[in-house]
């Protein structure tokens, strides 16, 4: 059985007219199904670029990236869009919800670009919103939700297409600590239920909610080790039913 993600000597550089900017200088690692990995590093370390490549949003310059045994470097733009729509779910720091659509519509958004019939879309989105504790907010627009609620909507959206892996890019960055705890708790519970999660963060405490931390510095892997003392998000309410 192929690994979820296999990255070998991955390099990324951008060419802006005459100037070439090197972001990733060659990183190599594997991620198995069901892992919860944090990618950590200061800003400028290349962690966001790495996540964009792993999330099929960006292409690599050199090296190789296999996703479930598929050579991602060989995929066309439309095939990458297909992978984004079916293999992964994104949770962003800035939520990126459509402010004029309801929470239900927001959660259904990824399914718009699949063949899932409308009835099933509504059903799946409703179930997921109930799962993250927002079953009573289906017809709210994001403007009426708190930051924590918005991020829970975003998590529901990331889950709606039954992805292989969830990418969370600084998911607690715009949240107060209580809401942040809620979000991390949900992510941990999802991982407990078998979902693969890749978390990008620059906060050590947040990163330690994962089982493994890959530290990047200046476009190279500085360390890649299992978390010895894992943080467990505790929050009064049991959000996952």
């Amino acid at each position: 059985m192929p690994k979820l993600i296999e990255v070998k000597n991955l390099k990324k550089h951008y060419q802006n007219e005459e100037v070439i900017t090197h972001i990733l200088h060659g990183v190599t690692f594997d991620i198995d199904k069901g892992e919860f990995v944090s990618i950590m590093g200061p800003s400028g370390s290349g962690k966001s670029t790495l996540m964009h490549i792993l999330g099929f949003l960006d292409t690599l310059s050199e090296g190789s990236f296999f996703f479930e045994g598929v050579d991602v470097g060989m995929l066309s733009g439309d095939q990458l869009a297909y992978m984004r729509g079916r293999k992964i779910g994104f949770v962003f720091q800035a939520f990126n919800l459509l402010n004029r659509s309801t929470t239900l519509e927001n959660v259904m958004l990824p399914l718009l670009y699949t063949d899932v019939p409308k009835k099933e879309r509504i059903q799946r989105a409703t179930e997921l919103l109930e799962r993250v504790g927002l079953g009573h907010r289906l017809n709210y627009t994001p403007g009426k939700l708190s930051g924590g609620e918005k991020q829970r909507v975003a998590i529901a959206r990331a889950l709606v297409n039954n992805p292989e892996v969830i990418f969370a890019d600084e998911p607690t960055g715009n949240l107060d600590s209580k809401s942040g705890q809620q979000v991390m708790k949900i992510l941990q519970e999802l991982n407990d239920a078998g979902h693969s999660i890749i978390l990008v963060t620059h906060e050590k405490y947040t990163a330690e909610h994962a089982k493994r931390i890959i530290r990047l510095k200046d476009g190279l892997i500085e360390s890649d080790r299992v978390v010895a003392q894992r943080q467990r998000a505790v929050e009064g309410n049991d959000l996952m039913k």
Binding site: D78, A81, N96, L109, L112, N161
Partner: peptide, 16 residues
């Protein structure tokens, strides 16, 4: 722009 970016991130092709 952000909405378009999001739609692409969740699987919309350029054609869509």
């Amino acid at each position: 722009t952000r909405e378009i970016g999001l739609r692409k991130a969740v699987g919309a092709t350029s054609r869509q």
